[in-house]
Simulated assay, not measured.
Amino acid sequence: MHEQMWPLWLTLALALVYFVKQWCWPSAATRQHDQLRSDWLQSVSATPGTEVLGVQTIRNSLMSCTMTATAATLAFMGSISLLYSSWAQTVSLGNKSAFLQHVLAVLVLLGMAFITSMLSARQWHHAGFVAGMPVGSAQRQQWLPLGQQCLRKAGHYYALSVRLLMWCVPVAVVGLFAWPGVIAAVLMLVVLWRGIDR
């Protein structure tokens, strides 16, 4: 393997370990937020007159994941521009492959961030219909379990999209400064495991 590629592969391996762990064994924060969203929908479903509040709350969350998708899209377009810019043309022939692989790694992360944001928006959308049904109606009671499931999925996808965007930073840094990028990836793991995921 090319000597310059070790820092990139090591950084991507750290990211993969984190995401596999998060997918198979969700963090305490993820499980707690699942319960919070489920309890919230249960609560507004038992309180008459909260239909507008429920839809508004879900709309705010929908806007958040739309902003994440927008950020990922803009960064994706910028990365594509970088591939075809004069900077890419000035990279020496020996480093051309390494440069392209670094940019490709960032593009994959950004693409996945966009997709998970859109999957989150889809789930928020479904949950919004349940939250907007009249409290006490038979239909709301019928669809309440599905609404709670949609809220759980929406939260998982949104958390994943935010973390994918965060991982773009060490992957981009490793393309500019190899081993400092790996250190940034290790620090990212510490921040996630000891902070955000708790």
Rank of each mutant, 00 (worst) to 15 (best):
Y18L: 09
Y18S: 05
V20H: 01
K21P: 01
K21I: 07
C24N: 07
A29E: 13
A29R: 14
T30H: 13
H33N: 09
R37V: 07
R37M: 14
R37G: 05
S38L: 07
D39Y: 07
W40K: 05
W40V: 01
L41W: 11
Q42K: 06
V44Y: 03
T47D: 13
P48K: 09
V52P: 04
G54C: 09
I58F: 05
S61H: 09
M63W: 14
T66P: 04
A72R: 00
A75V: 08
F76W: 14
F76H: 08
S85D: 02
W87A: 13
T90M: 11
K96M: 03
A98T: 10
A98P: 06
V106P: 05
L107T: 01
L107S: 04
V108S: 07
I115T: 13
Q123W: 00
W124A: 06
G128L: 07
M133Y: 13
V135K: 03
G136E: 08
G136A: 11
Q142G: 00
W143S: 08
C150M: 05
A154Y: 02
H156V: 00
Y158R: 11
W167Y: 02
A172N: 06
V173G: 00
F177E: 06
V182R: 12
V186R: 05
M188L: 09
L189P: 05
W193S: 13
G195N: 15
I196D: 15
I196K: 12
